[in-house]
Simulated scan of single mutants.
Amino acid sequence: MTRRLRIAMLAHSTNPRGGVVHALALSEALCDLGHEVIAHAPDASGKGFFRSARCELRGFPVSPAPSDMTAMVEQRIEDYLRHFEQPCATEFDLFHAHDGISGNALATLKERGKIAGFLRTVHHVDAFTDPRLMDLQARSIDYADVLVTVSDHWRGHFRELGREAICVGNGVDMVRFRPDRDETDHRLAVHLAVGAGPVFLAVGGIETRKNTLAILKAFAQVRILRPEARLLIAGGVSLLDHSGYQAEFNKELNGSPHLASAVSLLGAVADEDMPALFRRADALVFPSVKEGFGLVVLEAMASDVPVVLSSIAPFTEYVPPDAAVWCDPLKPASIADAMLAALSENVRRRSVKAGRKVAARHDWRSTALAHLPAYHALLDQTETIHA
């Protein structure tokens, strides 16, 4: 693509969630290819994006969020619409949404004739209990002119529904995520004070989709054989309401003081500390029951950390058998067996070597280049309509 594009990249928040991480890294890679990308997101905290970037960032203020999740989502859509009501905000060649909130805002702008069309990256499809949320999710997808997915699994999902999507994959920065230690490692180790370990790391917070309760139950079994083991749970800054699941998790955790003392709930970890956090772990435990791709899998593999992984798609699409320690995510005993196996030197050596090759095949430049056909398709479509 020789034409320099001005692209509006839209995320649902400024927090370090997978879709936001992907959107920022993609924006930077597109800028490196010579395009102008401005990343937008509602900034509820007023602190801006969770990290700086090699592209322009526009976090905009939002209205106070209602306690009801559906009302909050609708409020965020309205916040986005107010942001793009400014004349200069719609002076872009392309609009690219990465979530249902920004996708609905763009769908409304399209209905009003403010923009010609938009792309929507669907990282995964949620199953909400509220019909209104399901309708909003569907609208953000149905109104999109071009669909993008990060895995063949979800591209196949849409194909079954009669929609074609372009699969772009994911990337990892292997300069940043690497096995070599630096000055942050000692500082983080002192802060965590986890002892000799072994240390298991789960990333994504306490959520049903992340299968955190099953991880906890598996860890309890691991502690029978490895009483010195520790479990770190990082992340979890989500707009969705996971309070019911979190209450169930806390009940399980607090029911055993011996177990609770071995589990650290880290919450959101500073972006600059994430590479050292991976390196501190003896294994990443990622038995998710639903994922779009699983960015942290690549980050762990680039850091030479073994990965305990669900034997489901999309993981089975891009991770070869010897690059992970596989488990049945629905069986805590299977997760526990995989966690213990990941500590074996032979298993570790094999999975780390194969995992490094997997990570090396996924770079952000390739991910950005994979978007260009989607951008071409939308530009051709909108220019034909307005010809």
Results as ranks from 00 to 15, higher is better:
residue 284 L to V: 09
residue 321 P to I: 00
residue 282 D to V: 06
residue 319 V to N: 02
residue 315 F to S: 00
residue 307 V to N: 04
residue 298 L to N: 02
residue 279 R to T: 04
residue 309 L to I: 08
residue 273 D to S: 14
residue 273 D to H: 13
residue 264 S to Y: 06
residue 323 A to R: 00
residue 314 P to T: 08
residue 314 P to R: 07
residue 319 V to A: 03
residue 323 A to N: 05
residue 281 A to S: 13
residue 268 A to N: 13
residue 279 R to N: 07
residue 320 P to S: 00
residue 267 G to E: 08
residue 279 R to L: 06
residue 299 E to N: 07
residue 298 L to K: 04
residue 262 A to D: 11
residue 289 V to S: 11
residue 306 P to A: 12
residue 305 V to P: 10
residue 271 D to V: 12
residue 282 D to S: 09
residue 318 Y to E: 01
residue 310 S to M: 03
residue 307 V to M: 05
residue 300 A to T: 08
residue 304 D to N: 15
residue 293 F to L: 03
residue 303 S to N: 12
residue 321 P to R: 10
residue 316 T to E: 06
residue 285 V to R: 10
residue 304 D to Q: 13
residue 275 P to M: 10
residue 313 A to I: 04
residue 273 D to R: 10
residue 291 E to Y: 04
residue 299 E to V: 09
residue 267 G to P: 13
residue 318 Y to W: 12
residue 265 L to C: 05
residue 296 V to E: 01
residue 267 G to R: 08
residue 285 V to K: 10
residue 279 R to P: 07
residue 319 V to E: 01
residue 293 F to R: 02
residue 293 F to S: 01
residue 318 Y to D: 01
residue 270 A to L: 15
residue 279 R to G: 05
residue 323 A to Y: 00
residue 267 G to F: 05
residue 297 V to T: 12
residue 274 M to Q: 14
residue 275 P to T: 10
residue 296 V to L: 06
residue 277 L to N: 15
residue 294 G to F: 09
residue 288 S to M: 05
residue 290 K to C: 07
residue 269 V to R: 11
residue 316 T to A: 09
residue 299 E to W: 10
residue 269 V to P: 13
residue 299 E to L: 10
residue 301 M to N: 06
residue 305 V to L: 11
residue 275 P to E: 11
residue 306 P to K: 13
residue 297 V to R: 05
residue 263 V to P: 04
residue 276 A to T: 08
residue 301 M to R: 07
residue 316 T to F: 02
residue 320 P to L: 01
residue 296 V to G: 02
residue 311 S to Y: 09
residue 269 V to Q: 12
residue 311 S to D: 13
residue 263 V to R: 03
residue 291 E to C: 01
residue 322 D to Y: 06
residue 308 V to N: 01
residue 281 A to H: 05
residue 317 E to Y: 05
residue 289 V to N: 09
residue 277 L to T: 13
residue 271 D to N: 15
residue 276 A to I: 10
residue 313 A to Y: 11
residue 286 F to E: 01
residue 277 L to H: 15
residue 320 P to A: 00
residue 322 D to H: 14
residue 265 L to W: 07
residue 301 M to C: 04
residue 292 G to Y: 03
residue 296 V to N: 05
residue 294 G to Q: 11
residue 295 L to T: 04
residue 282 D to P: 11
residue 281 A to Y: 04
residue 271 D to G: 10
residue 319 V to W: 00
residue 279 R to S: 07
residue 285 V to L: 12
residue 278 F to S: 11
residue 293 F to V: 02
residue 284 L to G: 08
residue 272 E to L: 11
residue 298 L to T: 01
residue 289 V to Q: 11
residue 301 M to W: 07
residue 299 E to C: 09
residue 297 V to D: 04
residue 298 L to M: 04
residue 299 E to P: 08
residue 289 V to R: 14
residue 316 T to I: 08
residue 313 A to D: 14
residue 311 S to W: 05
residue 291 E to W: 03
residue 269 V to T: 15
residue 323 A to I: 00
residue 312 I to V: 15
residue 293 F to N: 00
residue 275 P to H: 09
residue 288 S to P: 05
residue 284 L to P: 05
residue 281 A to K: 02
residue 290 K to Q: 14
residue 297 V to A: 08
residue 323 A to C: 06
residue 321 P to W: 02
residue 307 V to L: 04
residue 292 G to W: 03
residue 288 S to N: 13
residue 308 V to I: 06
residue 319 V to Q: 02
residue 322 D to N: 14
residue 262 A to H: 15
residue 295 L to C: 02
residue 309 L to G: 06
residue 298 L to W: 03
residue 291 E to S: 01
residue 265 L to I: 09
residue 262 A to G: 12
residue 305 V to K: 09
residue 298 L to Q: 02
residue 302 A to Q: 14
